[in-house]
Design a protein around this nucleic acid. Structure first.
Lengths: 231, 231
DNA sequence: GGCAACTATTGACGTGGGTCAAGCGCCGCG
DNA sequence: CGCGGCGCTTGACCCACGTCAATAGTTGCC
């Protein structure tokens, strides 16, 4: 494991205050993997063996049931995933696959469970992390139940544009059908939603979506800190 | 605060392993409230002052946005609620109101945050609690995105019937429109969904819903431990 | 009892969004 | 270069579901 990766790991709020010794206990038995695009990492229903840390690339979390499938998250570095399953030693509720070539650190689940037994700082960081994730999913649920597809799209665009430093344009580095699934709709309907947003200054061209009237889009999207913000 | 209530509190996994001394620290400044039906307890967006514990009655959690409203949970004793907001000292994401006359214990938020700083057992219990809740919301999201309204209803009925000891019938102690909102639909459509389920042996009469063909209902609902179970 | 207010149901209707099919553009590969 | 495959878009269609309105049933209150 590279020195820079260790630094990256320590940059995460989850590991920030962990003692060097405990961190060793996690990283010693860890393995660093590089996966090509579209690699299946985790399967819904399986028992968790590792806490995953996405260091580079892009990972999709999705769930299937009864012939249907839906995306719940598109992850960017640096973040852990499937923390809750690891903590409870319960089956994964979601599957994961890479959307881009990715580097992922695998921390043995047993080691993770062991550490916060002994390290109060890590325990507290875990509490904060889980509480934030709980709130994030709650927001996804509200987004889904309280908004229409074009509204969800509009708010997603606002968030994506702000992450990109508000250049007024968003360029996807994954397929539109993945975005459709994340928004809880089909590729066909995503196309229509994008076409609909053209009226308020959203210009789509391939994988690049330009926002020409940010205020107009905001008016339409009605973003709320109780649904859309990070925490 | 009554002795029996203290016992009830200690029965919760969250407080089970907490030392008597720490528990005192929480319950000493706590206040026990009795609220009539339809009392507004908590408002979305407000800062959390208390960790609430529902001791008796029934509480609805719901969220509003842009003129729409949706129910996310219907709580039964004994359970805490709005834990994540209290931990992070962040605004509530949901509102709460009583559906029945209820008794609620209010633990000062600051005291709660203080205790798991000092009590590793409580910290660990909090981790487990939050991880479970995270998984529960994830399941709600999957339910919402992967199933139709009649399917959600069928699965809700199965769960409700099993809680009631599988007598083959479910009797609501709140309004149908609340159930409709929980299922992510309207009262009109809930009526239609119930009518539709009559074909597979679900007989509705007022607030009582009888399941005459449990296996038939299961076949239709296709319940999954990855969407429907408690944990 | 009787009225008012509210809940639940039912029907009619409209709309959002899923489905199916065709066409287009892009890319990789033979 | 041409072919096949895949992703995306568009149109046509249909179904699920929300909306509106009318009615019946319930509850509470004077």
């Amino acid at each position: 494991m590279r020195e820079t990766d260790l630094k990256t790991l320590q940059g995460l709020q989850l590991f920030k205050k962990m003692s060097a010794r405990q961190l060793m206990r996690l990283t010693q038995p860890a393995s660093l993997q590089r996966y090509p695009q579209n690699t299946h990492l985790v399967t819904e229903g399986d028992r968790p063996d590792f806490l995953h840390v996405l260091l580079e690339g892009c990972v999709e979390l999705f769930a299937s049931h009864n012939g249907r499938q839906t995306t719940t998250d598109i992850l960017r570095p640096t973040t852990t995933f499937i923390l809750a399953a690891v903590i409870l030693d319960q089956p994964y509720l979601k599957s994961a696959k890479t959307l881009l070539e990715s580097r992922v650190l695998l921390l043995p689940a047993e080691a993770v469970r062991g550490v916060f037994r002994e390290d109060p700082d890590f325990a507290y960081a875990t509490i904060a992390e889980l509480a934030q994730r709980y709130r994030s999913v709650t927001k996804l649920l509200k987004d889904q139940k309280l908004r229409s597809t074009p509204e969800r799209l509009a708010n997603w665009l606002l968030k994506a544009a702000s992450v990109n430093g508000n250049t007024g344009s968003v360029t996807l580095d994954f397929e539109k059908k993945t975005l459709a699934s994340l928004l809880g709709t089909t590729p066909e309907n995503l196309s229509r939603a994008l076409a609909q947003l053209e009226q308020i200054g959203v210009r789509t061209s391939g994988r690049t979506i330009a926002i020409t009237d940010l205020n107009g889009l905001r008016d339409y999207a009605k973003p709320s800190p109780l649904i859309d913000d990070g925490i």
